[in-house]
Design a protein around this nucleic acid. Sequence first.
DNA 1: CTCATTTGCCTAAATGCTTTAGGTATCTCC
DNA 2: GGAGATACCTAAAGCATTTAGGCAAATGAG
Lengths: 189, 189
Amino acid sequence: MVRAGLTTERLVRAGAELADEVGFEQVTLSALARRFDVKVASLYSHLKNSGDLKTRIAQLALRELADRAADALAGRAGKDALTAFADVYRDYARAHPGRYAATRHPLTPEAAAASAGGRHAAMTRAILRGYDLAEPDQTHAVRLLGSVFHGYVSLELAGGFSHSAPDSQESWTRILDALDATLRNWPGD
Amino acid sequence: MVRAGLTTERLVRAGAELADEVGFEQVTLSALARRFDVKVASLYSHLKNSGDLKTRIAQLALRELADRAADALAGRAGKDALTAFADVYRDYARAHPGRYAATRHPLTPEAAAASAGGRHAAMTRAILRGYDLAEPDQTHAVRLLGSVFHGYVSLELAGGFSHSAPDSQESWTRILDALDATLRNWPGD
DNA sequence: CTCATTTGCCTAAATGCTTTAGGTATCTCC
DNA sequence: GGAGATACCTAAAGCATTTAGGCAAATGAG
């Protein structure tokens, strides 16, 4: 009986790949066990349960996304930083739809605290340093950016913008232009 | 043996209520059968399968949302129409989180064609008539509005803006102000 | 009113995912 | 080489989905 060499790490990584292939919601311990040619019960030595797997995939995806965003932000400011950051989100979602869906998986407060969520928030605020926004407008702007990025990416992923002119890339560019303009001229009270 | 009086209509309506209570993803034929005190197999006379139920709940929610939006838009234009429309989305999502989640359920092309999706698109374009946008900018703006509304509402529903100042309502208002300004001063090429 | 038909709901059973309990085989390292 | 830890297993129970086939209640025609 040759051991499969399971570890939590490998299982989560394979789970993330599975998510990209079949969708995050379809990630199941059974499918994961099949992939390692192992009985389902064996996974329970490495994962608490199926929810644990999903939580770990979510945390992995948040980490990967934050890493890429940090790279993209290095040495950039203003609109340059804004578009680089936005593109990281969109590109990641298109390259890894299952992982991106995982980043929207609800986390318990503890799981959220152990995630890269905080880094995302910090980076968004870093971008806004290139614009002249004092609190509470800065927080409103953080929420606007989060809404537009997440909203656009998830509508695009759902196929909302395909098969209709103009090209989604064109809209994305123009929306980022508009967002930049909005941040430069944030309306006062 | 008294009959329960099942109909597709009643089942879908109850399914929507169930979605609001336990979440759209947790809507199951078993749970629905329990609610009517009926065996699961009995539902198959009225629904093709569990996917059929979810599709029908999605269509119901899209219809309800379109009806409310149409009411809200009547007699309004410009920013007034924009905020009324936006508020309908947000209020519906907060009052009926399960139904709102259902509106994001992927539909087959046929199911989408039979849905109120077209009315939503038409209403969004109607709002933009209050602003001076020619194609293709109008389409970019439609996509921006969709992204912001959906993105904000889903982040808020996921708890993203709770337990932190400023109030979510405040951000919503200021984001709509910013959106109105963006549409009035849409950046040219 | 009665009988035939349709319709509504049932039982039964197969399949698949999740989870726990407890066992055997394989590695590690002294 | 043997002790102990670790990796993976079998077995079984619980719950959701789906299909097949059956009895009973409603419906309507004569």
